[in-house]
Design a protein around this nucleic acid. Structure first.
Length: 190
DNA sequence: CCGAGGATCATCT
DNA sequence: GATGATCCTCGGT
């Protein structure tokens, strides 16, 4: 064996992946330096899910969600924010996991500068906040975790995971596809 | 600590 | 013309 296997969590299904991604460390290598954080909060979205951008099939904006698992889907919303998903499932299935919060690890000063604030607690406790702090832009849309500047590496073991309803949606409000590490200080909302 | 309201634009009706 | 997988500020409790 000359090649090492890709070290990724199980991305075969959005719901199980949303749970499995908790505890992994998201890393971004940029010209300004390395930033990283432990994934502490996620949400799953599927093509059959009325709250999902993939609902209704592939279009220009959501096309990355229909690529292979491990692809990065970046979307723009509310006229000013970007958020990041990790695509799951077989190619063409239109699934993904929204990364909603990180616990900062590497590059704290870089993240503070990008966010224009010094409050560690507010740096990455929201989907658009973490994207800004990590220096991730729309140019990351369509890249893959295996071969780009954004990677996943093993982080921490998670013991207690909370499963609840998703945040900020108007459809499928009762579906419990939001997961977060219990008692973690960097989760966006209790 | 919590809720209301504004910012701002791609996409859809 | 309306609506977001959001965030920040401000005011009240």
């Amino acid at each position: 064996m000359s090649e090492s296997k890709a070290r990724l969590p199980n991305l075969s299904n959005a719901i199980s992946a949303a749970k499995d991604l908790l505890g992994w460390q998201l890393v971004h290598v940029s010209p300004e330096g390395v930033t990283s954080g432990i994934i502490v909060e996620t949400e799953a979205y599927t093509m059959e899910d009325a709250a999902s951008h993939a609902y209704g099939g592939e279009r220009t904006r959501n096309s990355s969600m229909f690529r292979k698992a491990g692809t990065i889907y970046i979307y723009f919303t509310y006229g000013m924010h970007y958020c990041m998903n990790i695509v799951t499932g077989d190619e063409g299935h239109g699934q993904g996991v929204l990364i909603r919060a990180l616990e900062p690890r590497q590059g704290l000063d870089i993240m503070k500068a990008r966010r224009g604030m010094t409050d560690l607690h507010a740096l990455t406790n929201g989907p658009a906040k973490l994207v800004q702090a990590m220096g991730i832009t729309k140019s990351a849309n369509g890249l893959h975790l295996d071969n780009g500047p954004i990677r996943l590496i093993p982080g921490i073991i998670t013991d207690h995971v909370v499963q609840t309803t998703r945040v900020g949606i108007s459809k499928a409000k009762d579906v419990k596809w939001r997961f977060y590490i219990a008692d973690n200080h960097f989760v966006s909302k209790k």
